[in-house]
Design a protein around this nucleic acid. Structure first.
Lengths: 221, 221
DNA sequence: CGTCAAGTGTCAGTGACTGTCGTTAGCCTC
DNA sequence: GAGGCTAACGACAGTCACTGACACTTGACG
């Protein structure tokens, strides 16, 4: 909201190059696999030198997360905008759902949503990318914890609850993300449903006795 | 419990080489940093060829987790041994604590415990290693979820609770691990205390209103 | 012993990444 | 609108992680 005046030709060119590299990378990655794609192939597709690629991205991995990063920033904004009367978990829950609903607007300037969804799958199924994804998520968690703490007027380092709440929330999101990416339905609807269903299970999962109703599992799907 | 008879000279030699490589790697990593040590330096310290290193470890990273892997296997055993009347979270909690208490016996055959503790720190403070660590943890979580499900006679894929419970537990463990590694006290006592304290906060962190007692945080440490 | 296979070393090659340096091209000033 | 400044780029050389191929050494075992 401060550099609107006009970025100047130089900046615009840079942005275009960066977007083109990210898009080309994502297309190649999702098409022939992450490991089987070389940086040279990406740069050839955009017609820049390899050196330029590494000026925009610290590594091959980073190109895979360029778009995801945009959605994460948006998510943080959504959390910030949540009314203060909501409990932390409630605020987080609504923010994620809202984030899914606005995915299109967040992403379409760089790549089609469909490609972004496939990127998700790619990350979950590529060990090297999954590792980086989890580390990035951990960093996001720290930011979230500080946000929640601020929201509740607490000191993150004095009160464990913000970090614990965020950890619980993120843990569940991880599970749903994984299940979604390996399941058949890659629609936004599918992950919305999974998200709410699993978040609803946090309470039950923490009770002492899981067998209140229907001992011996293998129940209906 | 089945290959006790005597591993044979060949096997023993292999084990020695592998341990020596792991130990040398850990010493070098913790000493001069992960990125600043080359595979050649490790192999020179053990006096084997680089090729041999890669026959024992899929990559440089894997050498950093060789010992940690032993403790994880031990942890799984401990969970399996927990009496069935304990709730899932209770069983997990007791198993971790027990694991810390028996760390010495688990690890000392390869490296001194002190080096293992420094390895923990190293992993937390090295982005590349942290990423891999988190991925490995995710794999462990899946195993844990199946274990818990079995324990409770449930189907992991039908009932979300095993995975959710494990996710909650792991999330909290992550937080404590991180705080411990960045804090000053690297003793086993310290992480034990942190662990119990944070696990006790899961309940409170999920309640609607965090301000039951003492509005506006900044409470005592 | 002699044979067989597992374990190892050597070498050549690929791909990710980095430092350096000369060149190009927006930008800004007069 | 010519010229100087500097950000961005391309070209090149070098390091390091990792892999495949092949020849050699050495436990294992009849």
């Amino acid at each position: 909201m401060d550099t609107l005046p006009r970025p100047g030709l130089r900046e615009r060119k840079k942005q275009r190059t960066r977007d083109a590299l990210a898009r080309a990378a994502l297309e190649l990655f999702t098409d022939k696999g992450y490991e089987r794609t070389t940086v040279d192939e990406i740069t050839e597709a955009v017609d820049v030198s390899q050196r330029t690629f590494f000026r925009y991205f610290a590594g091959k991995e980073e190109a895979a997360f360029a778009v995801l990063e945009m959605t994460e920033a948006h998510f943080l904004d959504l959390v910030r905008e949540r009314p203060p009367h909501e409990s932390p978990l409630e605020a987080l829950r609504r923010a994620v759902l809202e984030n899914w609903d606005t995915l299109n607007e967040t992403v379409e300037s760089v790549i089609p949503v469909e490609l972004h969804m496939r990127t998700f799958q790619l990350i979950e199924s590529t060990p090297a990318l999954l590792a980086v994804h989890l580390r990035r998520t951990a960093e996001l968690e720290e930011k979230l914890a500080r946000l929640i703490a601020e929201r509740e007027g607490l000191d993150v380092d004095a009160d464990p609850r913000p970090r614990v709440a965020v950890a619980v929330f993120s843990g569940v999101m991880r599970v749903t993300g994984r299940l979604w990416s390996t399941g058949g339905d890659l629609s936004v609807e599918a992950i919305r449903t999974l998200t709410t269903a699993y978040l609803d299970q946090v309470g039950p999962a923490l009770t002492k006795d899981w067998n209140i109703q229907g001992k011996r599992g293998k129940g209906p799907a």
